[in-house]
Amino acid sequence: MTHLEKLEATSVHILREAYREFKSLVMLWSIGKDSTVLLWLARKAFFGHVPLPLVHIDTTFKIPEMIAYRDTLARQWRLNMIVGKNTQAIAEKRTFPDGKLSRLECCKVLKSEALKHTLSGDWTRFRLDNKLGKYVEDTNKEPYTGVIVGARADEEGSRSKERYFSPRDRDSEWDIGDQPPELWGQYKTDFAPGTHVRVHPLLDWTELDIWEYIGKEHIPVVPLYFNQGDGKRYRSLGCWPCTAPVESTAGNVQEVIEELKTGKFSNIAERSGREQDKEDGGGLETLRRGGYM
């Protein structure tokens, strides 16, 4: 088996294990390349089907192409698409840069809080009605207790400490010091009521693996990842006020791969364009303890 085939097989095994063990399971789809690969792997695991809901947290600051791409794929692949947002904070403009919030606080309000309440079911969920072709209020208010996330260990420090199956307590708290052992393809799949689990099938993948797999499988990704003629492209996608494109002429998957292997990015971190990471030393770790993905 090739390196990519092994990564794929491990991720598929993990997805099937999660699907078998957790009754109330969802997958987060940020629309970025990683979680899109994750979605593709779900189609691999379930033989073309995606038998679980996909949750997207819409901050309303996402780059518009991302939302268009999301809904196109959702219709095409008949996805069970759920969207959640912090409607109140957005209405009150408690955001960055409009309000007085720092970037990190804005992430917390628009992403962490919205995610927490969307998963628990106490905030309105919007479900794509594939017949009507639009989003309607979801009648299911049951909490989701298993969440599949596309985090990779190589992204930044705190993510390298994760497990494939990582428990969170009632308040989404994460105890980094005391994590379950994982061996021989056996994971922590037993949970006390009230706790929930995050599943990370992409933990072993690197940014380069992701792109090589996208190339190999011809997975459709948002065109924002490629240079559209202005010598710029996004390497990592987020909200427009906090995500800057990088200078690059890479116009397709092959060119992105070449650039990562040999070019100017081979030694620069992927999230270097994400401003919120720079605000305090352990910025993302702080966010992740509080439930950020």
């Binding site: 260990a153 190589d154 930044e156 420090g157 705190s158 390298s160 971190a269 990471d277 030393g281 352990g282």
Partner: peptide
């Protein structure tokens, strides 16, 4: 190398 991780460079603690 571990210190650098928290600043976003892609080297793993344990690996």
């Amino acid at each position: 190398l571990k210190d650098e991780q928290s600043q976003g460079i892609t080297i793993d603690t344990a690996r």
